[in-house]
Amino acid sequence: MTKEQLKLRSMIVTALFAAIIGIMAQLIIPLPLVPITGQTLAIGLAATILGSRYGLISVLLYLAIGSAGVPVFAEFSGGISKLIGPTGGFLVGFIPAVFIIGYYMEKTGYTYKNAMIANTIGMLITLSFGSAWLKISADLSWMAAFASGFTPFVIVGLIKAALASWIGILIRQRLITAKLLIPVHTVEKEKSF
């Protein structure tokens, strides 16, 4: 198989992840102001499986599709108003989160331990962006913004980080074995789990 064919397969998997994020966004536990969704789990999976470059592309594609009005955001919503509304900071926070998760994994190796550290950092980045945006857009105090946009999501975020790490490492190894994903580095620490 040529390098171009492998790259095409990686791009197809990347596009599929944009769709997976949209599907998982519909898994919702309603809370006042900000619901718990499956988006952050999907973001962690995308970063853990695809790495910084393709993970970032999948998130940017997801955000572009949603901003164009396709109902891929939580509660089957879409449009630019979601990005600039009270919960838009969580969506925008996916961009640095997915890149940093993937970058951390590329630099430290694709192990469960490294994935858990990276996904926890990514979760904290997303929650921080979301809370800061919530403070500004909803005109809340810092205490109220963190009470609404950060604190209720930490425990669930750690559970999602653990799931994204475990499932992500497993799927990544299988995709590479099936030649559906190109490893970022020629020497990767993929073996230890």
Rank of each mutant, 00 (worst) to 15 (best):
I29D: 01
P35M: 13
A42D: 10
I65A: 05
I171T: 14
I80T: 11
A115Q: 12
L127Q: 01
I136T: 12
V72Q: 03
V154L: 15
A18N: 06
M24T: 12
S81N: 09
K107Y: 08
G51K: 03
G89K: 03
A74S: 15
G66R: 03
S58M: 05
V34T: 09
P32R: 15
F193V: 09
I155L: 15
S10T: 15
L61C: 11
M116H: 00
P96T: 05
A46N: 12
L175Q: 09
T37S: 15
F94Q: 03
S165N: 10
I36M: 11
S141K: 11
I136C: 02
S67A: 15
S128C: 08
I57M: 12
I20Q: 02
I43C: 11
Y54M: 05
F153S: 07
Y104M: 15
V92H: 00
G88H: 02
I95G: 06
A46T: 14
M24N: 14
A162M: 11
G22P: 06
L175W: 09
M1E: 10
Y104F: 15
F146D: 07
L61Q: 01
Y103I: 03
M105P: 06
R174N: 14
N119G: 07
F129D: 01
P183W: 04
F17Y: 10
P86Q: 09
V98G: 08
L163M: 12
I21P: 02
E4T: 13
L180A: 11
V98W: 06
S148V: 02
G78E: 04
F153V: 12
M116S: 09
I95Y: 09
I23G: 10
A46Q: 12
L45M: 14
F90Q: 01
I29S: 01
L158N: 02
K113E: 10
G78Y: 02
M116R: 00
G79N: 07
P32L: 14
I167A: 13
S192L: 11
N119M: 07
N114S: 13
F146R: 05
G85L: 02
S165I: 10
L170D: 08
A74C: 08
G85I: 04
S148R: 08
T108R: 15
L127D: 02
L124K: 07
G66C: 08
G149F: 03
M123N: 06
I49K: 03
T48F: 02
A132W: 13
T126H: 01
F94P: 03
S192F: 09
I159G: 10
D139C: 00
A144G: 00
L140H: 10
A118K: 08
F94E: 01
P35S: 14
Y62C: 08
F193S: 07
A97R: 00
K189R: 15
